[in-house]
Amino acid sequence: MTRLKITPGPGARSAFRLGIVAAAVLALACVGLLYWAGHLTLVLTGFVLLIVFPVYLVFAASVLSVWLGYNKDSSDLRPVYREKKKKTS
Rank of each mutant, 00 (worst) to 15 (best):
L18P: 00
A23D: 15
V31D: 04
L28N: 13
G32M: 02
I20P: 00
V43K: 05
I6A: 07
P8R: 05
P8D: 11
I6G: 00
T41W: 02
L18H: 05
A15I: 01
L42E: 14
K5F: 09
K5L: 13
A37L: 09
V43G: 00
T41S: 14
P8V: 08
L4I: 14
V21E: 11
A22P: 04
A12V: 11
L18F: 04
F16W: 09
P10A: 13
A37R: 03
L34K: 00
F16S: 01
R13F: 13
F16G: 00
I20H: 00
V43R: 08
G11L: 12
T45V: 08
G38R: 06
L34S: 02
C30V: 12
W36L: 10
T7H: 09
T45G: 11
V21Q: 12
G32H: 05
A12L: 11
G9D: 11
G11R: 14
T7Q: 14
R17M: 02
I6L: 10
G32D: 02
I20K: 05
R17Q: 09
L34G: 00
G32F: 05
L18G: 02
V43H: 03
V21M: 06
G38C: 03
V21F: 07
L18Y: 07
A24F: 06
A15W: 00
S14E: 14
G38S: 03
H39I: 07
L4D: 14
L44E: 14
V31T: 06
A12F: 02
A29M: 07
V43Q: 10
T41R: 01
H39S: 09
R13D: 15
F16Q: 08
